[in-house]
Nucleic acid binder design. Structure first.
Lengths: 374, 374
DNA sequence: TTCACGCGTGAATCCCGCA
DNA sequence: GTGCGGGATTCACGCGTGA
């Protein structure tokens, strides 16, 4: 068990909190107390059933997912595995806890049907639209440009699950957060590489995706369990966002990489993490996307063009000034004593000593999105 | 049976072509010949499991799907129904036919798992992103802004299914069509209304969605069956796009509305329907033809684009390098140390001091052949 | 210092006709 | 059915290199 607990941890917290547990997730979850977990994020094997090698048009070979842990003898074997871990997960979930499972068309239908059979109550299916997916090299299908996440409560009757509706809405330019989310795949500096320069894990998920999952359906201080921890994206984002995590993973290489990674994560300030709560006052790239993708770091100070007013960016995509938090538009209006304000053209960030209006940053994201649009 | 056949129909075509068959889709499909349908589009009941009435914030009542045909006693009952109609559908599908099924998170996971169990081979899941979805009025979930379509072939081994890759790519600004499609929901003038001004069918799909389905995976003249015909969107779009249809529907009201609707549809001109097709559709021209016609003289030296490798053309249409002679493709692969190579785009000839790819010479031959055929 | 360009790569169920 | 071989097929982004 890799212990990554902070010195500030409450002494009464269980010894498995903020650790990586080595082993098979079914038996390890069985060893945890029932009704102890606030939220679960699971990225199980997809059972890809790939055929032979695949080459790009330039004859380079695609580095496919051919790991032993993704191999199953049959649909029945995959179903049995899925049923077992979902049952174990359901036992440790609090009555009002929720679970997220991510998958592709290879496995997600089996997972979803089994979740319904076991009594989970589906709340949403959420589509992760990839802004830069791998092409279909042979031109025989549509480009597989998304993955699917299922979000479910433990029971149909569980009505008090956590959903930070107002925070999501405020983060999405004051309209409801939709069930289709656009994010790039995990690449570049975020992608963990081994000493050989090769990716440590074949299916590392982007932190921005996990950030929205965690911000939408958990509260600071909650405990999030990931039964297929891999290289610990769930743990890293949970720690950064002031949540506790529990990871379960079988492979030593992954555990080691995850432990190093999480150790270097610095949790955000409590003030930045404070959630928007209650009914908001009245009033299309969401500002949250800029935060989730890292274009604007949480905690960044925003100012108007003349530097007369300041606000601070929070992790959920709202901003705060004078003790109040809301969308970029609302806070922009508030500090000026006006009824309305276009936050996109009002607020600026300081870059290299210069002010840059955030509308320019939105344009960057829009350009990315235009490539993916219809 | 509502007969909507055009006078121009070939007399030898079966009597059920371009008609709406009244009755239960399982027994009606059983009465059709096996291996007779090119494509199926199915919009089965979603098994919505709604609780009580839902009201908007202004207290107006949401007109939900509460029809008898959407009620099932249990998941098991829904599964049995799904299995039955999918089995019947699979029997009438041609070996290289494909099937589309649309659903929401309430039912699509069960449908997808059963499709896999029955031997269908999933090709893509395609997300219909709604540009104007209904909001989540209670603010307890993400806005349910999409539906999911599964596209599958009859068997894993069926490789020759229709996919109009080049047409889709051209329609999408010359980049591959992705698995997420953005369309508005069916409303306004397209939405069929009864004499009372009330919508005729609760789940009428937009014609644009069906158009992309049909254009991507069928050819003009193909036969498309819809076992849950409703108000006939599939039939209307199929007719407009020069395809044949077969509809099966139980409710007289829907059949009547669909028949009227389809009668008023005017098929598009063949010229408009002609599909973009890439090199795959071009006649095969052996490299030997270029030598035989004198476009490339025996003894000519071929090089790659950067002049790193050379080969010499032989009179029989093979080329030689490093003491070996074989096709332009084999030698191209050999000199590079690869398994495969497209010799047409790899090899160049020197003309007036410039390099010219031999694929251009092939195009000259193809143009000559086309001119001669007129 | 900046820009242009080449190269590598990502959860992939990825060919088809003829003998 | 199997085997063989022609030849068709890629999008976005990060990084390194060289001018």
């Amino acid at each position: 068990m890799s212990n990554l607990r902070r010195a500030s941890s409450v002494s009464a917290s269980p010894e498995w909190l903020n650790t990586i547990i080595k082993g098979d997730c079914v038996s390890r979850m069985a060893a945890l107390p029932a009704n102890s977990i606030d939220a679960i994020f699971a990225d199980p094997p997809y059972n890809l059933q790939l055929g032979g090698d695949l080459h790009r048009p330039d004859q380079s070979k695609v580095d496919a997912v051919d790991n032993a842990w993704d191999q199953f003898e049959s649909f029945a074997a995959y179903d049995a595995f899925t049923r077992a871990w979902l049952l174990a997960a359901r036992r440790i979930l609090k009555p009002n806890g929720t679970i997220w499972v991510i998958g592709s068309y290879h496995n997600i239908f089996r997972v979803g049907a089994i979740m319904q059979d076991l009594g989970f109550w589906l709340l949403n299916d959420v589509v992760w639209r990839k802004s830069n997916p791998m092409p279909n090299f042979r031109g025989r299908r549509f480009q597989n440009a998304h993955e699917t996440m299922i979000w479910a409560s433990r029971d149909q009757n569980a009505k008090a699950y956590t959903f930070n509706y107002d925070a999501m809405k405020a983060a999405n330019d004051d309209t409801q957060m939709r069930s289709d989310w656009l994010f790039p795949i995990c690449s570049g500096g975020e992608r963990l590489k081994g000493e050989d320069g090769h990716k440590v894990h074949p299916t590392q998920k982007p932190e921005a995706l996990l950030a929205r999952v965690i911000l939408s359906s958990t509260r600071p201080g909650d405990t999030i369990l990931d039964p297929f921890f891999g290289t610990g994206t769930t743990g890293a984002v949970a720690k950064r966002l002031g949540r506790n995590f529990v990871g379960i993973e079988r492979e030593d290489d992954y555990i080691e990489a995850a432990a190093d990674r999480i150790l270097s994560v610095e949790p955000l300030d409590d003030a930045v993490l404070a959630m928007t709560s209650g009914k908001r006052a009245e009033p299309r790239v969401p500002f949250a996307t800029l935060v989730e993708t890292g274009l604007v770091a949480p905690g960044t100070e925003l100012t108007d063009a003349r530097g007369r007013w300041q606000a601070r960016v929070r992790a959920d995509g709202t901003i705060a000034a004078n003790g109040e938090a809301a969308s970029i538009h609302r806070i922009g209006a508030k500090v000026q004593g006006l009824d309305a304000c276009n936050g996109w053209t009002f607020w600026h960030v300081k870059e290299d000593g210069r002010l840059r209006v955030i509308d320019e940053l939105r344009q960057i994201v829009r350009d990315q999105m235009a490539a993916a649009a219809v």
